[in-house]
Design a binder for these strands. Structure first.
Lengths: 149, 149
DNA sequence: AGACAATCGGACATGATCATGATATTTTCT
DNA sequence: AGAAAATATCATGATCATGTCCGATTGTCT
């Protein structure tokens, strides 16, 4: 599916946080809106925190907030925080002969990787939200799903 | 890594078969040249056979051959035979409200998927070989690795 | 200040899928 | 018949997606 389930979850979570940027959002609430299993989402949020994308606050009135404004976070950053889409620096069949340069096959694959990296780097979380404000649909599939509690 | 290990193996195998198109190549030989664990390669070849990309022949003088000419097989076909990169037809958070149309996030992801599908569909196995004949490097990283046996 | 409750943060456990190995079984050429 | 192959089956360790628990913080209320 191009990106892993986990990376897709991470994007959902970040988008949902961006929709309420500034407010502190609790894991349970996020889980409900994004339809991500709460226990798993918790782990994903930890990863995003370590990557410096979100800030967490414990205790009462705690929760998560984005570290940066939605227009300062690219989709690529979120994906890379979870499962880096690495470029191919060297050929998987590592033969001594070609330490320089990849073979045609892997050169093509690397180009494709570079292409999707560029695509994902080219738009931000905010881009995913702006559209929503222009009518049609909300950031996360019109997900309003049972207001918190 | 964009495509799975298995899909990458499948590409290596197909490229290696293409390099000797017409000849019947044995699994062990393929495994040596492509550096793919023989037991696993065997399973991949089964999948490729069921997908109609290669033809197999049992018994003495048996082995595998491409079903079609290298220029008639796209990289995408090989990948799809192993692990289909599906378009997103519907939003993963399947809420009734939006049976039509994806939300911005998933629309973008779907576009990215479409993009890589197009990229991979746009060139053939032969394209990976032609370059090799023009000097520089061979189809599979100059892999000549210990001639059969 | 102290108790309490809401939250995150980590540790451990599990089923599924992936990548792989080992082995037996069938087919087919010579 | 015998050997060389593919094909099929079973087993394993690693990683992924997930669940469960408990411990560590921290705001709020007496």
């Amino acid at each position: 599916m191009l990106i892993s389930q986990t990376a897709e979850y991470a994007l959902r979570a970040i988008v949902s946080l961006a929709e309420r940027h500034g407010q502190s959002v609790v894991t349970q609430d996020l889980a409900r809106r994004t339809r991500i299993p709460a226990g798993y989402l918790s782990k994903i949020l930890q990863t995003l925190r370590r990557a410096g994308l979100v800030h967490s606050q414990r205790g009462l009135r705690g929760g998560f907030v984005l570290q940066r404004a939605p227009d300062k976070i690219s989709v690529l950053e979120v994906i890379d925080a979870i499962e880096p889409i690495r470029r191919m620096t060297r050929c998987p069949l590592d033969l001594p002969e070609h330490a320089s340069g990849l073979c045609p096959l892997h050169r093509r694959l690397d180009e494709a990787i570079g292409q999707v990296r560029n695509t994902f780097a080219s738009f931000s979380i905010a881009d995913l939200l702006d559209e929503s404000r222009r009518g049609v649909s909300r950031g996360l599939c019109d997900t309003v799903a049972a207001p918190a509690r």
